[in-house]
Design a binder for these strands. Structure first.
Lengths: 363, 363
DNA sequence: CTGAAAGCGCTTACAG
DNA sequence: CTGAAAGCGCTTACAG
């Protein structure tokens, strides 16, 4: 059923004879009146609005008995503070803007969940921004979120447009960088060395006796490039670095891409005996492709992934990977930010949470 | 390096002799003064604040030339409206609260991205709430988000606590339900029949000559139960429903769980010749387990999943599944909500986007 | 430790 | 079509 564009909406009431001069009805709620305000709570508790405000916010310097009365009154009336009014008056919301590249990589979902587990109980609300690995989108998100006067910022990595960086710096807001670390004055970060992790997993393949080790990657974001750097360093040190074995594709990673890149690689370089994939989904796809092609893993080609994602332990054979402690990163970054938002000087501005090799049968 | 708790922060400046009576320095930005306000824009454009406000919001009834001047002035000054002030004055923010069960199921990530692709260009900001399939968490999120006076609500399905439902109803806000459909006065929904989809995929297995068809599920959320209902209906109609072949686990779905449930099922019922999994990750895990156990798919056991997730087409053999149009659901739900927020009567309060069988070699 | 006044930056409702 | 006044619901200074 469709209404004609110009036809009056079906629910319009017939005009009554002596209708009272009521204001036009809006579809949405009109709580302007209904809302329980701080003044209501203050009146109920027999104190001033300021005292009620201070008691509710837990500001010290309020008589315990009074505070008790205020809390009781608030509970009785079902008072919920208005975040907009609070933000307007104090110039800061209880929002924390969290900028991550992508939600389809479960890595970032786990990071996010961990951040929220720390921030939510502390009374902060996360404003989730997905940049799709695009610097221009990150800049736009930053611009839009900054208008909401967040209390703090959580961002991924260090690579962004100068304008985006200027927005962060100019805001003067506490900001913690996640997933990578960098030592610099006034810079806060929680992560690990992507390059060291890339180097470690490559050295593991070398220790397995492999010499023709390829690096296969998708997405090509900054961290993927840092892992490549680690791969190069390890192979150069071992004297068997071949730039031709570096296969990168800007497409987002997926099992399908992994299968395709693996077939490409083996067609071009049949002598490859080890592969380091920048992300587990690529490796999973390659593992299945190898099974289909009859290429023995690890006998003919050893494989290792990155991030130890769900399902990697279920593969045939189970996949060797690098376990990246994203939950730890999220928790520590949020905790660090919490301290900064309270005006505290952090014990350490940079936290390296490390990484862990998970050696399974694919290598 | 660690600072002693009581030591003064390292950056405290030495007290100057004739220091001006400046206010105490705060770590965070003090834009109270710096901020460009609507009044600045109005002054720059030579109009009143109201006119500037109306011009910027695109309210009709502003002289074109004036509006042009206002926009130019805003651009020149780099004016960014303050969402908090706007929300406080108008009793509504530009937020839309989106409540989804989980981010680790890529289904919901795709749904969300699609919602944002529609809402963001329209000037709305999504407030993402993850309920973890827990009614109490949903209720708490609703309470907290409603305080932010969102302009609209997007929720998943219809099953929630009475209190949560009362919050939604009492808010008077436009609300669209996603993933399921339900015909009821004043209720808006975009989705498809989970039961019909469950029935259709089961009938497909029946058409392949299978008679001992099991339903294997995790999570056990309302939609998983509706699919079970479809499975039952199809088998009853075919005269071969066996309740013993219904294997459900409350654990979140994963490849590992799929492998485990598959082994359990085959141990208990070696005669099973077809399996419908409530989600593709379960089926993927089962497929790998079958490969490991030497059980031929589809010869001995045909398998079908649900949602056609990433990787299912890469499996050995490629997995038959039900493609659920979550991007379509997200787009249509957001569009419907947009109309409601503008006070329009929707052409149809319920949109069924359907589903599609994707038959591959596993069945 | 408590409070009266002012103001945050917008929009609503009312006039003209 | 445009505007002056009032107010949204809080918190920030400033006093006492």
């Amino acid at each position: 059923m469709r209404h004609d564009e110009d036809a009056p909406p079906a629910h319009t009431p017939a005009p009554a004879e002596a209708a009272p001069p009521s204001p036009p009805v809006r579809r949405t709620a009109r709580r302007a009146t209904g809302r329980v305000t701080l003044d209501d709570v203050a009146r109920e508790a027999g104190v001033s609005a300021i005292t009620a405000s201070r008691a509710l916010r837990g500001t010290r310097g309020v008589d315990a008995a009074l505070a008790e009365r205020v809390h009781a009154a608030a509970a009785r009336l079902g008072y919920v503070p208005d975040p907009a009014a609070r933000a307007l008056a104090s110039a800061h919301s209880q929002h924390v803007a969290v900028l991550i590249p992508m939600l389809s990589n479960t890595l970032f979902v786990e990071l996010l969940e961990s951040v929220q587990r720390t921030l939510t109980p502390a009374g902060y609300q996360t404003l989730i921004g997905v940049t799709h690995y695009r610097p221009d989108e990150e800049e736009a998100l930053l611009r839009s979120y900054l208008a909401h006067r967040p209390a703090g910022l959580l961002v991924t990595g260090f690579d962004r447009t100068p304008a985006a960086q200027a927005l962060i710096d100019g805001s003067g807001l506490p900001c913690v960088h996640m997933m990578e670390t960098r030592q610099a004055p006034g810079v806060h970060s929680v992560g690990f060395s992507q390059q060291a992790a890339g180097r470690a997993i490559t050295e593991h393949l070398l220790a397995r006796g492999r010499r023709r080790i390829a690096y296969v990657a998708g997405q090509m974001d900054p961290r993927v490039m840092q892992r490549a750097e680690g791969w190069r360093a390890a192979l150069r040190a071992a004297g068997c670095h071949d730039p031709a074995l570096e296969l990168m594709d800007p497409t987002p990673t997926s099992m399908a891409l992994g299968g395709r890149l693996f077939r490409e690689l083996m067609a071009r370089h049949p002598d490859v005996d080890g592969i380091f994939f920048c992300n587990d989904d690529l490796a999973q796809g390659a593992l299945l492709a190898a099974l289909r092609m009859g290429i023995a893993v690890p006998q003919q080609v050893a494989m290792a992934g990155f991030n130890d994602l769900a399902g990697s332990d279920q593969m045939i054979p189970p996949l060797t990977s690098v376990r990246t402690p994203r939950a730890e990163v999220g928790a520590q970054a949020a905790t660090l930010l919490l301290g900064l938002m309270r005006g505290q000087q952090p014990a350490q501005p940079t936290v390296d949470v490390g990484f862990e090799l998970v050696v399974r049968q694919s290598s």
